[in-house]
Amino acid sequence: MADMERKREQILRISGVNPRKCMRCGKCTATCPSYDEMEYHPHEFVYMVETGEIEPLLKSESLYKCLSCMACVERCPRGVEPGKLVEAIRLVAVREKGGDRITANDIPALLDDEMPQQAIVTAFRKYQK
């Protein structure tokens, strides 16, 4: 429990997000291009960080459905910036020992001839430490 409280504080600190600014309008989730693939939606990320339910978020596949497109960040009427919160939680997850989502060995099987380098380096930044 103490560990999760420490992680919650870390997430708030590195994201700079204040979930208490949220007025629960749901616009972040409504505008999210990945909402129908997510177990926890952007507004739930915000709410669950506020209430301290960190562990399910750290384990959720939803972390890897976020496209970092920043639509939720741009369109939040209260400036909560849910996408930055998702990014901080994903970082805390992949920084754990054994937390890498992908490794260099996984890459060759995922490639095709046309895939731009940009996709590979970006996924590495997002999924691996």
């Binding site: 990945s34 890897y64 496209l67 639509a71 992908i102 996709a119 590979i120 996924a123 999924y127």
Partner: peptide
Amino acid sequence: CCGGYVALE
């Protein structure tokens, strides 16, 4: 968004 880097996996 076009789906971005998520296309990799």
